[in-house]
């Protein structure tokens, strides 16, 4: 009898342990960078203040970044980026809201690297587009991180590049996303 109780207690313990790993994870210090390769010059900028929430139960992912938090090597580039191209006073944020298409392939409780396909709505410069991209989810010692690299076509988001600088800015910008999530305390 005592053994059964012990087994039941252990079972209950592991059961709660398992459910504990399910739920919402978030970060407010996510890293998003972009790289533009063009004949005249390469441009890159980094943003260390991306916020993101991931719901392991539903496979839902949301990201938001502040355009003005992108930092460039050159002040002039940063100024042009904000004022001429992204119009960040009018559109201060870029967001992505989507779902992991193959969420059932990810075992959130077991260490490993999982390839995922995410699709959803990306909003940049006030324009919303449905996109699908590949990424990886890494589970390590109960911590969750997510990585992705994809291309964004400048013209898709109504960002106009004057012909004078057409050789300075790539038509497709490579975006790199690197998030380390923390469990959201209830």
């Amino acid at each position: 009898m005592r053994n059964i109780l012990l087994i039941l207690a252990l079972f209950a313990f592991f059961a709660t342990e398992n459910t504990f790993a399910q739920g919402k994870y978030f970060t407010r210090d996510g890293h998003v960078s972009f790289f533009s390769a063009a004949p005249m010059e390469n441009i890159e900028a980094e943003n260390h203040k991306a916020t993101s929430v991931i719901d392991t139960e539903t496979g839902r992912m949301e990201f938001a970044i502040l355009i003005k938090a992108f930092e460039f090597e050159k002040a002039l580039m940063q100024e042009h980026f904000n004022e001429n191209y992204m119009e960040s006073n009018q559109y201060p944020k870029a967001t992505f809201k989507g779902d992991i298409q193959n969420a059932s392939d990810v075992d959130w409780t077991t260490d490993g690297t999982y390839d995922v396909t995410v699709s959803g709505d990306m909003t940049i410069h006030g324009v919303t587009k449905n996109i699908t991209t590949e990424g990886t989810i890494i589970v390590e010692n109960g911590a969750i991180s997510a990585k992705s690299k994809f291309k964004v076509a400048v013209a898709d988001y109504d960002i106009e590049i004057p012909t004078v600088v057409v050789d300075n800015i790539a038509k497709e910008i490579e975006v790199t996303v690197d998030m380390k999530y923390q469990r959201l305390e209830k």
């Binding site: 502040l66 003005k68 938090a69 930092e71 201060p92």
Partner: peptide, 14 residues
């Protein structure tokens, strides 16, 4: 610092 807006937090950089 420089104010860049609000996500969940209000963010200041540099």
């Amino acid at each position: 610092g420089v104010c860049t807006g609000m996500l969940m937090d209000v963010v200041l950089v540099r």
